[in-house]
Structure formats: structure tokens, C-alpha cells
Computed example of a mutant assay.
Amino acid sequence: MDILIKILSTLVAIEFIFIMYLETFATTSKKTAETFNLTEEDFTNDKVKLLLKNQGVYNGLIGMVVLYATFFALNGNAMLVGSMIYIILVAIYGAYSSSNISIFFKQATLSVITLVLLLLF
């Protein structure tokens, strides 16, 4: 089961590092616009771009914490439980605040599965 948890946790980390890439490095790309339901007009606002880049740094750090907990931390499973709960709560807030339930499923599905496995085994 430990291998499955490592695989799922790594996938969660990759997801958040990819979100960081979209928000921080590919800020004005078509893929970023599609992912976050933004228009080209939104990208003309420098404040929007700055906010996206800033949010991207946070998402990248979440990914790095998950990787650290998965492969290097002495009490990695405890860190993973906390990280997965945090990710799930953020996904709930994102879905609620945007009135878009799909955000929860896109952002939290792997984390929910990982958390259940962590708590059961």
C-alpha cells in the first residue's frame, strides 16, 4: 500500500507543480485561459497576471511539500495527511467561491483518495 500512496502523492504533487507552471510561467497561454476560464482581455490587466503568478508560487510550494513528505520526511505520512486535508479544503473553497463544483473534482480527487488510503493503512 505504501507504494500506491507514494504514486498517488507524487501525482498530487505533479498536479500542483503543473498548476504552478500554468499560473507562473505560462500565465497568458491559451491553456491557462482555458483552465482558469479567463479571456484574453483578462491578461491585459497586469494585476491579474501578477495575482496568477503569485498564486502559482503557492501551488508550486504545495507540490514541493507533498514531494518532501512523500520521499524525505521522517514522519511523511503525518505531513501527507495534513497536506491532503489542506488541499481538499482549498478545493472546497475554490468550488464554493467560484460556484463551479468541477474545481473540487479536478483539484481534490487524487487528494481524497490519497487521504483515505493514508487513514486506512
Rank of each mutant, 00 (worst) to 15 (best):
Asp2Ser: 07
Ile3Gln: 10
Leu4Ser: 07
Leu4Asn: 05
Lys6Glu: 12
Ile7Ser: 07
Thr10Glu: 05
Leu11Trp: 07
Leu11Lys: 01
Val12Thr: 12
Val12Met: 09
Glu15Gln: 14
Phe18Cys: 04
Leu22Ala: 04
Glu23Tyr: 02
Glu23Phe: 04
Glu23Val: 03
Thr24Met: 15
Thr24Asp: 00
Phe25Glu: 05
Phe25Ala: 01
Phe25Tyr: 14
Thr27Gly: 07
Lys31Arg: 13
Thr32Ala: 07
Thr32His: 04
Ala33Thr: 11
Glu34His: 05
Glu34Thr: 10
Leu38Asp: 09
Thr39Tyr: 07
Glu40Ala: 10
Glu40Asn: 13
Asp42Gly: 06
Asn45Gly: 09
Val48Ala: 06
Lys49Gly: 09
Leu51Tyr: 14
Gln55Trp: 13
Val57Met: 15
Tyr58Val: 14
Tyr58Asp: 00
Gly60Val: 13
Ile62Ala: 07
Tyr68Ser: 04
Ala69Ile: 12
Ala69Gln: 01
Phe71Gly: 09
Leu80Val: 13
Val81Met: 11
Val81Asp: 02
Ser83His: 05
Ile87Lys: 01
Leu89Cys: 15
Val90Glu: 08
Val90Gln: 09
Ala91Asn: 09
Ala91Arg: 02
Ile92Asn: 02
Ile92Ala: 06
Ala95Leu: 10
Tyr96Cys: 08
Ser98Lys: 14
Ser99Lys: 15
Ser99Glu: 13
Ser99Met: 12
Ile101Trp: 15
Ser102Pro: 04
Ile103Ala: 00
Ile103Glu: 02
Phe105Thr: 12
Phe105Glu: 06
Ala108Tyr: 05
Ala108Met: 04
Ala108Ser: 09
Ser111Gln: 01
Thr114Arg: 03
Val116Arg: 02
Leu118Gln: 02
Leu119Gln: 08
Leu120Gln: 09
Phe121Glu: 12
